[in-house]
Design a protein around this nucleic acid. Structure first.
Lengths: 118, 118
DNA sequence: TTGATATATTCGAGAGTGCGAATACTCGAA
DNA sequence: TTCGAGTATTCGCACTCTCGAATATATCAA
């Protein structure tokens, strides 16, 4: 039954294991958005966004609210946003190292750092 | 370049997105272990464990130390352990809900809760 | 009703993942 | 050297994931 817990955890992580879904969750952590808005912000096609949202819905990571023609998504639990905030520390520390070598050739790492801090 | 950060994050999540790797990380968060020990604890074949460890290595989530014949693994950064602690709150809250219905039929949820708290 | 807009689902192809079996590598002991 | 234990890698197969295209559903407005 300990396995059940790990399957559950892995399921959540897996749901977060795609750049597009990371982006979606990040935007939603700042407030609810309609699908159309998300498509625009994230820069992805409608059908594709809808599929990613389905993944997040299946894991109960997001919830929806219908308003007339459109559907607004929000994080089910702000706790997840907080958890992601905590992980940002980790991401920042290691993303920096990971891009250290690149920094010498390309620039742009600064931008990444700024993003990491948010 | 904001995309780079999200790819990086998603990569970490994806690496954690498998029950076996969740188990490995959980064990390692309590101290280093050899591959053999991990195999036994996690209950998985050697080749399989090695493959999962390779995934974690590639994401720089774990580091290794050689001692004679065997190789000891540890978490690269305790920060990750802390971050996972934060997520445990989330896991606990929602795992409980997710198993509420089951609890009426089966028992065992208590064990799951205990695991979640650790 | 009809049409338009917003969102979801289905489908098929291609890429990626997980597994066990087999094989290779590495190190220390004999 | 040679052997054996511990670990890593490769291979082939089944399965899953992701994408865009096409299609379906729902809601509002005319």
């Amino acid at each position: 039954m300990l396995d059940t817990m790990r399957q559950f955890k892995a399921g959540i992580f897996q749901a977060l294991g795609h750049p597009t879904r990371v982006a979606i969750v990040e935007f939603l952590s700042r407030g609810e958005m309609s699908v159309g808005q998300l498509c625009e912000k994230v820069g992805v096609e409608q059908a594709n966004a809808s599929q990613h949202l389905a993944v997040l819905r299946n894991k109960h990571i997001v919830e929806t609210r219908k308003e007339g023609n459109q559907i607004f998504y929000r994080l089910r639990d702000p706790l997840l946003g907080e958890a992601l905030d905590k992980m940002r520390e980790y991401f920042f520390a290691h993303m920096t190292k990971a891009t250290e070598m690149l920094r010498e050739e390309k620039k742009g790492a600064k931008k990444i750092e700024q993003e990491a801090k948010r």
